[in-house]
Measured scan of single mutants.
Amino acid sequence: EPLWIRPDAPSRCTWQLGRPASESPHHHTAPAKSPKILPDILKKIGDTPMVRINKIGKKFGLKCELLAKCEFFNAGGSVKDRISLRMIEDAERDGTLKPGDTIIEPTSGNTGIGLALAAAVRGYRCIIVMPEKMSSEKVDVLRALGAEIVRTPTNARFDSPESHVGVAWRLKNEIPNSHILDQYRNASNPLAHYDTTADEILQQCDGKLDMLVASVGTGGTITGIARKLKEKCPGCRIIGVDPEGSILAEPEELNQTEQTTYEVEGIGYDFIPTVLDRTVVDKWFKSNDEEAFTFARMLIAQEGLLCGGSAGSTVAVAVKAAQELQEGQRCVVILPDSVRNYMTKFLSDRWMLQKGFLKEEDLTEKKPWWWHLRVQELGLSAPLTVLPTITCGHTIEILREKGFDQAPVVDEAGVILGMVTLGNMLSSLLAGKVQPSDQVGKVIYKQFKQIRLTDTLGRLSHILEMDHFALVVHEQIQYHSTGKSSQRQMVFGVVTAIDLLNFVAAQERDQK
């Protein structure tokens, strides 16, 4: 057995438009009618409502009807409940999964919650491996369901041993009777949507819809739904939504950006999952974080739909894509998950301010006199920076000697690579993860907040409520011999709460 199987392995699926269902090699399930009293909570997966979006479509000038398939009504709160249950049931049916076995899954959280929910009911041990950027709410729900959680670096490539995929496979090879159901490759993922989600949409719309818009992560949702719609409703256009920084969209030119990270969760990847059939997507749109969270908040405030950030991405694209539809036509959007997962993220004004998705003037509360002053007023001194090749031991000596707790790590040209902190280095040394002679590049981390000289002290204040420091950066445009230009970030300084307090105190003292 291989040590790991690539999540982007070539698909062996034989589905073709027009091929009889009787030739399918898979076990198919028909939607079942729910009894009045459910035998367990797993029976509350599927049969989610279709809700008309009344205000947002009109606000953006849509002539067509805009409908939302509300997947956050599933038992675990997301569309991923469907595939989690289906993968477990299919693994039980073919004898792969037996009582007492362990389920391991690399996930952005929602599939993990679905699997942990099913594992709690069915009696399996469950280990979820997820990147650090995923919300604390997801972690809390997983723990409450009895799952064990392993976190991995957000910026690790999918084929790196440190990625959530790599760590999951390492655990599988170490733990007896453990299984990775593997949402990236498992046919049960798109089949769950082909058999149930798509049929529900067709039934709820009486077979009449002209466009379907869905955000894409593993691709199982859009693949399964689109294949069924292509068979039953061939005139329906399928629109895929991919965040900026991901590479799922086609044509490839759409993916060209210097951005590699994004805040919206559960969609987009740096590889093409095996289950994603991009041939059934008629057109791709890219979405960005700001519009995703703005539209998610709009869905909550104006439509009462308590959905997550990827739902915002989907609707932001839908109001663009559906401009081509006329009166009497219908566009369906998939709202994948609930706001429950993001209470401390985009639902929080403070978080939105820190990330730059909300401006101070958007909030009406009274601010102190210094709130709208610029960061450049602080008069920061030149920063202490270190090269990635310097040793951890030497870096600790320098920081202690100069009285700093942290320093930016830059390359020879001064471009920011990340940050090192005294606390992080000492804990890594004590844990045996690094040696004093190791290069400081081994303990770089990139989960820090950046701020510009033109940003306000109010925004800085919000950042420092949650973080010990902020890195002050400025952009530099560099022209190359080819005539092309590129933008790079340079370090201007490091600012802490002490710097802000000293500035405010000094100004008030001078005024007296």
Rank of each mutant, 00 (worst) to 15 (best):
I238L: 04
G240Q: 00
G240C: 08
V241G: 13
V241D: 06
V241R: 00
V241I: 07
P243H: 03
S246I: 00
S246D: 03
I247K: 09
I247E: 08
I247V: 15
L248G: 00
A249T: 02
E250L: 13
P251W: 01
E252P: 09
E252L: 12
E253H: 03
L254Y: 05
L254R: 08
N255K: 02
N255A: 03
N255Y: 05
N255G: 02
Q256W: 13
Q256P: 07
Q259Y: 04
T260A: 07
T261H: 12
E263L: 08
E263A: 12
V264Q: 04
V264R: 00
V264L: 06
G266A: 02
I267V: 08
I267M: 06
Y269A: 05
F271E: 02
F271D: 00
I272E: 05
I272D: 05
P273C: 00
P273I: 00
V275L: 04
L276K: 04
D277T: 05
D277L: 02
R278L: 03
R278Q: 05
R278H: 02
R278N: 05
R278E: 02
T279V: 11
T279I: 12
T279N: 13
V281P: 07
V281C: 10
V281G: 02
D282A: 07
D282P: 08
D282H: 04
D282L: 07
K283L: 09
W284M: 00
F285W: 03
K286V: 01
K286Y: 02
S287K: 08
N288D: 10
D289V: 00
E290Y: 13
E291G: 06
A292I: 04
F293P: 01
T294N: 05
T294C: 07
T294E: 12
F295G: 08
A296M: 04
A296F: 03
M298C: 11
M298P: 09
I300R: 00
I300W: 00
E303N: 02
E303W: 04
L305I: 08
L305E: 01
C307P: 06
G309E: 05
G309P: 03
S310H: 01
A311V: 07
A311F: 07
G312W: 01
S313G: 08
S313P: 13
S313A: 13
T314Q: 12
V317Q: 08
V317I: 11
V319Q: 08
A321V: 15
A322D: 03
Q323E: 11
Q326A: 11
Q326E: 13
E327V: 07
E327K: 13
G328F: 10
G328A: 05
Q329K: 11
R330Y: 10
R330K: 13
C331V: 03
V333T: 14
V333P: 02
I334F: 15
I334Y: 00
I334M: 11
D337L: 01
R340M: 05
R340D: 05
R340K: 08
Y342P: 01
Y342K: 01
Y342M: 04
M343G: 02
K345D: 01
F346D: 05
L347C: 03
L347P: 04
S348E: 13
D349V: 07
R350A: 14
W351P: 05
M352Y: 06
M352D: 04
M352W: 00
L353Y: 14
Q354R: 10
Q354S: 12
Q354A: 06
Q354P: 05
G356S: 07
L358A: 07
E360R: 12
E360M: 13
D362H: 11
L363Q: 08
L363C: 13
T364M: 13
E365N: 05
K367C: 12
P368C: 08
P368W: 07
P368M: 07
W369Y: 05
W370Q: 01
W371N: 09
L373Q: 04
L373W: 06
L373D: 10
R374G: 12
R374P: 10
V375N: 12
Q376E: 13
Q376W: 09
E377S: 13
G379W: 12
G379C: 12
L380T: 12
L380D: 10
A382K: 11
P383F: 09
L384D: 12
V386E: 09
V386F: 10
L387V: 09
T389H: 13
T389P: 15
T391E: 09
T391Y: 02
C392A: 15
C392F: 15
H394V: 12
H394K: 12
T395W: 10
T395Y: 11
I396Q: 09
I396R: 04
I396G: 11
E397Y: 06
L399P: 03
L399E: 08
R400S: 08
E401W: 06
E401D: 15
G403E: 10
G403M: 08
D405L: 03
D405R: 09
Q406D: 02
Q406I: 12
A407L: 14
P408R: 02
V409P: 05
V409T: 14
V409L: 07
V410C: 15
D411G: 09
D411F: 09
E412G: 13
G414C: 13
G414P: 02
G414K: 09
V415N: 04
I416C: 14
L417K: 03
V420D: 05
V420P: 02
V420N: 01
V420A: 13
T421R: 13
T421L: 15
T421S: 11
T421Y: 07
L422P: 05
L422H: 09
G423S: 09
M425R: 11
M425L: 14
S427C: 11
S428K: 07
L429W: 09
L429H: 13
L430V: 13
G432K: 13
G432T: 05
K433I: 06
V434C: 14
V434N: 10
Q435C: 14
Q435A: 14
P436K: 13
S437A: 15
S437N: 14
D438F: 15
Q439I: 07
Q439T: 13
V440T: 05
V440H: 07
G441M: 12
G441Q: 12
G441Y: 14
K442P: 14
K442Q: 15
K442T: 14
Y445I: 15
K446M: 13
K446D: 08
F448K: 07
F448I: 15
K449R: 13
Q450R: 05
Q450D: 14
Q450W: 15
I451R: 11
I451K: 10
R452V: 11
L453F: 15
T454Y: 12
T454F: 11
T456R: 12
T456K: 15
L457K: 04
L457D: 00
L457Q: 02
G458I: 08
R459E: 07
L460A: 06
L460D: 02
S461T: 11
H462T: 12
I463D: 09
I463P: 11
L464D: 06
E465W: 00
E465V: 11
E465M: 03
M466E: 10
M466Y: 13
D467P: 09
D467S: 12
H468N: 14
H468Y: 08
F469I: 09
F469H: 09
F469M: 03
A470R: 09
V472K: 03
V473R: 10
E475L: 14
E475H: 10
Q476I: 15
I477M: 14
I477T: 12
I477V: 10
S481D: 10
S481G: 13
S481L: 10
T482V: 11
G483C: 15
K484M: 13
Q487H: 13
Q487C: 13
R488K: 14
M490S: 14
M490N: 12
V491A: 15
F492Y: 14
F492A: 12
G493F: 13
G493D: 15
G493T: 10
V494S: 05
T496E: 07
A497I: 12
A497S: 13
I498C: 07
D499Q: 07
D499M: 00
D499C: 14
L500G: 08
L500W: 08
L501R: 01
L501A: 05
F503C: 03
F503I: 03
V504L: 07
A505L: 03
Q507L: 09
E508V: 08
E508D: 13
R509S: 12
